[in-house]
Design a protein around this nucleic acid. Structure first.
Lengths: 258, 258
DNA sequence: ATAGATATTTCAAATATAGCAATATATATC
DNA sequence: GATATATATTGCTATATTTGAAATATCTAT
């Protein structure tokens, strides 16, 4: 027999899970009917969640999530949990493929490296933790642009100065928007010498269960080594790593969906 | 007698509250000693929190918060909860002082209006929900700059093009940094014709319990009406409103500290 | 290999919880 | 304003769940 699980706590979190993107308020009647609880029991659980600061009563019998979850969420994302969590995954990919791998977040309209792995034969990779890259001409960047809100993306494209780094750099907005839509469709992005001549990359998103992009993962290297075959292999490894990341960030009880 | 509160749920949230900025991992022994629980009981609660997806085991007997709290936090901040929550507070301030009031968030290096109240005599206030303002020359903006992370602020000051809108616009970085430090010290910011001639404003931050700035609140109007006396009165009303906002966002069980 | 610390499971006593019933309050209708 | 209905809240108690001692298993340090 396994460890005894506390039923009350399970019910409390079942209530919290009723809140979703389309539902920011929940009533006692909702809880009783959807969780198959006695009305009085539902009432008592809601009052308990209010008591501990998890819910706020907006009217009698109607509740919404408290801002305390923003604080708890900040505790999860503060510090370097994400970089530390993803580093072993990057190490494994680089050990496997002998090409550099990187994890990024999107901050102040730039792609920022939060973890990287470099193989022994790559002594002069120019990326380090903290490095910032433009979004419009990188595989990471196109992934971020694909999965951010439309409003944030429109603002980015309205304001970014799109320099042409190489002959391959896409600067026309319409072309960019088509490429970004394709990345969203495929779930990954490629880069072939857009930011730096002779460098190819493939990137995938790590998505939160709520749909928001948490981080990007990529493999990159010289075009001479990043053949179509290696690139496809790298893509498969990155997709697998993104799923593993979900397990590490959320725990293993529910397989994250890509 | 009041509503029966479920002790198990209270204990579970007591465990979640052990995590703070300086502590992203908690052990079974920690929980047992700090919450005065039997070791077996602590063990069972931690396993239950892991079971519901709230915690992730990083090793045997050691846990951290799951990414599920980022999702719950996103549900709190998604939609327009903040704007809707703050609107009645702004309405009350404007009814009281007969000057315009505004709430903002900071997004993509700009101050963005999420709610505003305008009195009857102000038929031509140029600000509406969604309006974006520069940070370096507005009361709101200086409040945001004062309470954001040092790294984010340095990046903002490194990259923003500081146009001189009026004779009063401060564009020298050293002067700006001194002013921002003073705002952090005082807990509020003033603006006197920096962004637009003849317009004065006073702004305060709304801070999350974790310390992060959630929103800014301000009162603004023509210098001819925004006398020093009215400005001080506005400041007091804004500070009171910021405290009320805490009560609305977190629930009334703990008075928020400004 | 051994000692000590920590984690996990079994079992039963203790107690907190769940739900019925009653009462209070709110809302809709006339 | 009166009435009916729906929802919220409280009192009470039977019982289901939780708690903690004891035993066992596993891990870590020496």
């Amino acid at each position: 027999m396994v460890t005894q699980i506390n039923g009350s706590v399970v019910k409390a979190f079942d209530i919290l899970k009723l809140f979703d993107e389309d539902r920011n308020e929940v009533t006692t009647t909702d809880v009783a009917t959807e969780l198959d609880l006695n009305f009085v029991t539902a009432h008592r659980f809601l009052r308990t969640l209010e008591h501990v600061g998890a819910l706020v009563a907006v009217a009698k019998g109607r509740y919404r999530l408290s801002y305390v979850f923003v604080d708890l969420g900040d505790r999860v994302t503060g510090g370097d949990l994400l970089g530390q969590t993803l580093q072993p995954l990057l190490n494994a990919i680089t050990a496997d493929l002998q090409e550099a791998a990187m994890a990024t977040v999107f901050q102040s309209d730039m792609v920022v490296c939060i973890a990287r792995a470099v193989s022994r034969r790559q002594l002069s990779v120019d990326i380090r933790v903290g490095s910032r890259l433009e979004a419009y001409c990188t595989a990471h960047g196109k992934t971020w642009l694909a999965f951010m809100s439309e409003r944030q993306r429109a603002h980015y494209l309205d304001t970014v100065e799109r320099l042409r780094f190489t002959r391959n750099t896409v600067v026309e907005r319409a072309t960019l928007e088509r490429q970004i839509a394709e990345v969203r469709e495929l779930g990954h992005a490629f880069n072939d010498s857009e930011r730096e001549d002779g460098i190819r990359a493939v990137a995938v998103p790590i998505l939160a269960r709520g749909g928001r992009m948490i981080a990007g993962l990529s493999v990159f290297g010289p075009a001479s080594r990043m053949t179509d075959e290696i690139t496809q292999l790298a893509l498969a490894r990155l997709q697998h790593a993104a799923r593993d990341a979900g397990g590490l960030l959320y725990g293993q009880i529910a397989a994250p969906s890509a």
